[in-house]
Amino acid sequence: MTDTALFTYCMRLADDSAILSQRLGEWCGHASHLEEDIALTNIALDLIGHARELYTYAGQIEGKGRDEDALCFHRVEREFNNLLLVEQPNDDFAYAIMRQFLFSAFMHPFWEAMMNSKDEQLAGLAAKAEKEATYHLRHSAEWVIRLGDGTEESHNRINNALEFLWMYTGEMFECDEVVSSLVAKEVAIDPMSIKHLWDETVNTVLVRANLERPTESWMQTGGRKGEHSEHLGHILSPMQYLQRSFPQAQW
């Protein structure tokens, strides 16, 4: 019997990685300097790696013969379960960095905790992903600090990004029945159990960046149920175009 909860859980994580890597890929060749172009591409590559493993595993759990590409390229907006945070656009470098920081500050302790998952596949991926997330967090945190404590312009830009993106951070800590059923089996972790680590990282970095943590306010939700911002459709359109246009083709 298909483990629906595990399938859904893997798909959510895979979609987070796939959509964020697509956003990061948009920078390729267009970043502020070569070193940063290479760094953003590097993060995108790590995330594609996670997405591929997770989609493949999800496809095996589902048992309907769908591979990583079928799952990534042949689903519509409403079937994508990524966080709203990762689909937010690259309005400028500050948005890209803040989005990455808020996400990686969660994903680093997440993967660290997932190394103890009773699911061997997820625990194995976590061991690899934790190392990569360490770098993603360090890279984005250093930039948040540099931009926050750089020039007046950079401070304003990173502050705008923080204020805008903050409302998408609550979704990372949601624990619905999919997650709680897997927490009970020690396959998944309760995201609230790492909230204090996320808070600590965010608070420390924001202080060093001379940024004020936004006051707790309304948090957006919906991504995990396939209710997205308008941006997702525009991400999927180019991403899925070749697979949709030539469904018989192998690439």
Partner: peptide, 25 residues
């Protein structure tokens, strides 16, 4: 990059372009 037809091809393409940036450096 955003239109690569599979995840594998996308990763290869990104890695290749990243190499070109490295060569530039």
């Amino acid at each position: 990059v955003t239109r690569a037809p599979s995840l594998k091809r996308k990763a290869i393409l990104l890695a290749k372009i990243q190499d070109e940036g490295g060569h530039g450096l």
